[in-house]
Design a protein around this nucleic acid. Structure first.
Lengths: 153, 153
DNA sequence: AGTCAAATGACAACATGCTGACATAGCTTG
DNA sequence: CAAGCTATGTCAGCATGTTGTCATTTGACT
């Protein structure tokens, strides 16, 4: 057996490398989960990430702003939002603070999609954490945040 | 602020969703780290994942076998290994157990690349964990494994 | 032995991410 | 105010991943 299932770590170094590889694997599984879950809504993982960011922002967000929150390139986000505008989920709104950089907002259809997303995401989150103590989740989140800070200069 | 930095979770559900989004972000940062680290070696994240899996396997591995370890599609792995064979890092070897599905092995150049990978990866792992208790890493890995099992049915 | 489902290779289409390059808008600083 | 640095939009090329399809090989079961 290769990387998976190796529970013997001769050092902190090996433990960390095992954690990194496991994180790659979990990342792929989570995206697959998200895609399956939102398939019926006409969404994909890339799209509900964007919808989620916009829905949670009180003020308006520009494309580079969304990219900064997600930690992605502005070009990648721009491509997604352009398609989502075409599909009627988002619309661009004049930005009083910048002549060229418009604000991205949810259309009515986009708000409906967000609600539908919540309707499947919430039960999914509850179901998959019911046997995990909240302290474990909290500790995991703190570790992940610590690593993010380390690599996000 | 948006998803990041939100430390107030009204429920386990919110905590979990925050964790998932943070994992997406960390995943991107780790790939960027790996790419930067191995740039001088002519490797990319996709390539050192493959090299790592092969190097750690005692017996020979087929392309679908590598894909299963990494949790990716066999087609994605096939494309990477084809290029790596062209580049001289890997070679295909007749598989006594299967007429069509060949074994993927490291060439001498591939072994050299793996050693070079270790030479940069090990100090990186040590450096980035020196201020994190081994218990925290272990608990994090156990949580990640638990989630992987949940989604990898 | 014969049949049939699963695994594999090969190819194609597509989604998502990155970087680079260039022009323009906005801001800071002299 | 002018110059210059930074942020943004836009376009292009590329790497990496997914799914779908089809033919062939394996292996299991009757």
């Amino acid at each position: 057996m290769g990387f998976r299932g190796n529970s013997v770590h001769s050092s902190k170094r090996m433990l960390f490398l095992d954690l990194v590889l496991s994180l790659f694997r979990l990342n792929g599984l989570l995206i697959a989960e998200g895609d399956d879950m939102t398939e019926a809504l006409g969404l994909t993982s890339a799209r509900w990430k964007v919808i989620g960011v916009i829905a949670l922002s009180s003020a308006g967000l520009t494309v580079p702003g969304i990219a900064r929150v997600l930690g992605q390139s502005r070009q990648a986000v721009q491509r997604i939002t352009d398609v989502m505008v075409t599909d009627g989920l988002l619309s661009y709104q004049t930005n009083p603070k910048h002549k060229r950089s418009v604000l991205v907002v949810l259309t009515e259809q986009g708000k409906t999609a967000y609600q539908a997303l919540r309707d499947v995401q919430d039960p999914w989150a509850i179901e998959n954490t019911e046997d995990i103590p909240i302290e474990d989740l909290d500790a995991g989140l703190r570790l992940v945040r610590r690593l993010i800070q380390k690599f996000d200069k």
